[in-house]
């Protein structure tokens, strides 16, 4: 290794994007930024979600990382090396949104082509093709023409080609797009399996439930800027609030009512929101009334609620954490 090459350690982030910017147009006709200032760090072995409404700059950011769009400015690194440097992207797999393939090819031929482009030998491609097709639920489809593939099958094949060569970093743009619920579950399980194997994943998705289910960290973009970033628990836990589930009656005990900030009841189970400082008093009041406590947990928003609320705030372009 030469002195000029960066030292890559296991702690080196899988992906670093710093102050990415992409502007279109010129000063004369009016300049417009698709991405104004986006910074993302994906830790090794983590699944990092990238969220944002349409036009937030998610796909443009990914394309800049992958060399498909020339950035106006910013720093892009994959495994500690500049993303544009020769050899860097050999360790990366990419699933584009709604992947397209030359439809005259068969599934195995497509994987052979992309395997060759990934620098794999013939024997490696021959070995990996059936395994990957099985992994994405396309076993036995090796010789089927892609012109006869459904959209969901093409999506699965897109995932298979992204995983050729066992890349250390995978970028997935809307991986569940076009898949039925079973397919979406399969993709989710596959992402979790990849994380277990140490693969780092940058996942761009509109499906908040998918992000919430698999991601360790999220970055939320809005209008070309980072609106929020952090660990998903940190973002969704409501500061200073706890959630209590209890059973025991049709009306809340009188000793509990003064502490409750929100309440919901379903099937005899009450779910209450209370200030963390009041938890002890509420628990005692339930005990005195003879109720059963199911759980006491930090109050957590759904990602959908958090996302909606965040984008409705006027300062949604600012960094929360």
């Amino acid at each position: 290794m030469s002195a000029s090459q960066p030292v890559v350690t296991p702690q080196t982030p899988a992906i670093v994007i710093e102050h990415a910017r992409k502007g279109y147009g010129s000063a004369a006709v009016g300049r417009k930024d698709a991405v104004s200032d986006v910074s993302i760090t994906v830790s090794r072995g983590a699944i990092h979600g990238l969220l944002g409404p349409n036009g937030a700059g998610k796909t443009t950011t990914l394309k800049m990382l992958l060399g498909l769009v020339r950035p106006t400015s910013g720093r892009f690194e994959i495994l500690g090396r500049p993303a544009s440097a020769a050899g860097t992207r050999s360790k990366l797999g990419f699933l584009p949104e709604q992947p397209y393939f030359p439809t005259q090819l068969q599934a195995a031929e497509a994987l052979r082509l992309y395997g060759q482009l990934a620098g794999l030998t013939k024997s490696m491609i021959a070995e990996q093709t059936p395994l990957l097709l099985e992994k994405v639920g396309l076993e036995g489809k090796e010789t089927q023409s892609l012109s006869r593939f459904s959209r969901g099958m093409l999506q699965r094949l897109g995932l298979a080609q992204a995983l050729l060569g066992s890349p250390e970093v995978v970028v997935l743009d809307e991986p569940a797009s076009g898949l039925d619920p079973v397919g979406q579950r399969d993709i989710r399980n596959l992402m979790l399996e990849l994380r277990t194997q140490g693969t780092s994943i940058l996942l761009s998705s509109h499906q908040l439930s998918e992000i919430e289910a698999v991601c360790d960290e999220v970055t939320i973009l809005n209008r070309g800027m980072v609106a929020a970033v952090g660990h998903i628990d940190d973002l969704l836990n409501v500061e200073g609030q706890a959630s209590i589930r209890a059973r025991g009656g049709n009306e809340l005990p009188a000793g509990v009512r003064p502490y409750v900030t929100q309440t919901a009841v379903s099937g005899g189970v009450w779910v209450l929101s209370v200030a963390k400082s009041d938890v002890r008093g509420v628990v005692d009041a339930f005990d005195d009334a003879g109720w059963t406590l199911d759980s006491v947990t930090p109050k957590r928003d759904s990602l959908e609620d958090y996302f909606t609320r965040l984008l409705e705030t006027p300062e949604a372009g600012g960094v929360i954490q």
Binding site: L66, A86, G87, L92, F94, P96, L117
Partner: peptide, 10 residues
């Protein structure tokens, strides 16, 4: 967009 699968690689 078949070019994406090619040029996003090395």
């Amino acid at each position: 967009r078949t070019v994406f699968n090619v040029l996003s690689r090395d």
